[in-house]
Structures are given as C-alpha cells and as structure tokens.
Amino acid sequence: AVSDRLIGRKGVVMEAISPQNSALVKVDGETWRATSGTVLDVGEEVSVKAIEGVKLVVEKLE
C-alpha cells in the first residue's frame, strides 16, 4: 500500500494528539490523521511506527 512507505518517516504534529484523540500530522508534505499512545503537541517531530487502517501510528522523535 502507498501508506506503507511512510513507516519510519519523520513528520510534524499539526494538531495536538492524545491517546483518546487522533489528529493531523504532516509527513513528506502530505497531511495524515494519526494516533499516538502519548500526548503530542503542535510542532513536535514524530516518527511513523505503523499504519492502522487509514491512520498513522506515531511516536515522539527522541
């Protein structure tokens, strides 16, 4: 799938994300809905860990 190429890519949080709420991230110039197990604020850099349906699963870039 096209989205599989995004695993391992870096992105930027466009809307705050919490474990209860998905929000938008920008990866390679494209906007995607994403979820995370932690709270992520706007502007934080993230890494794509997986794809669940049409959502990216991201975590904060260390």
Rank of each mutant, 00 (worst) to 15 (best):
A1N: 12
A1P: 11
A1D: 11
V2G: 10
V2E: 10
V2Y: 10
S3P: 13
S3V: 09
D4E: 11
R5Q: 08
R5Y: 09
R5E: 08
L6K: 02
I7A: 04
I7H: 04
I7D: 04
G8Q: 01
G8F: 00
G8P: 02
G8M: 00
R9V: 07
R9W: 07
K10D: 07
K10W: 11
K10H: 12
K10V: 13
G11Q: 02
G11R: 00
G11D: 05
G11N: 01
V12W: 08
V12R: 04
V12N: 03
V12P: 02
M14D: 03
M14R: 00
M14C: 09
M14F: 06
E15I: 09
E15W: 07
E15T: 10
A16V: 15
I17V: 11
S18A: 08
P19C: 13
P19T: 11
P19V: 09
Q20A: 11
Q20F: 13
Q20W: 13
Q20E: 12
N21F: 10
N21D: 10
S22H: 12
S22Y: 13
A23V: 14
A23R: 01
A23W: 15
V25Q: 01
V25E: 02
V25F: 00
V25N: 00
K26M: 14
V27Q: 02
V27R: 00
D28S: 05
D28V: 02
D28W: 05
G29H: 05
G29Q: 05
E30T: 08
E30P: 00
E30H: 09
E30R: 08
E30D: 07
T31E: 09
T31V: 14
W32R: 03
W32G: 01
A34M: 02
A34R: 00
A34D: 02
A34E: 03
T35S: 08
T35M: 09
T35V: 13
T35W: 09
T35R: 05
S36L: 05
S36N: 04
S36K: 00
S36P: 03
T38M: 11
T38E: 13
T38V: 11
V39M: 11
L40G: 00
L40K: 00
L40I: 09
V42P: 07
V42D: 02
G43W: 03
G43A: 03
G43R: 03
E44K: 03
E44N: 09
E44A: 09
E44T: 12
E45G: 05
E45A: 09
E45W: 15
V46N: 01
V46L: 01
S47V: 15
V48R: 00
V48D: 03
V48F: 00
K49C: 12
K49N: 05
A50Y: 07
A50C: 08
I51P: 01
I51R: 04
I51K: 04
I51Y: 05
I51F: 06
I51G: 00
E52T: 07
G53V: 02
G53N: 05
G53P: 00
V54S: 14
V54F: 14
K55L: 15
K55T: 15
L56Y: 02
V58K: 00
E59L: 04
E59S: 06
E59W: 03
E59C: 08
K60N: 04
K60L: 07
K60Q: 05
L61Q: 06
L61G: 05
E62L: 11
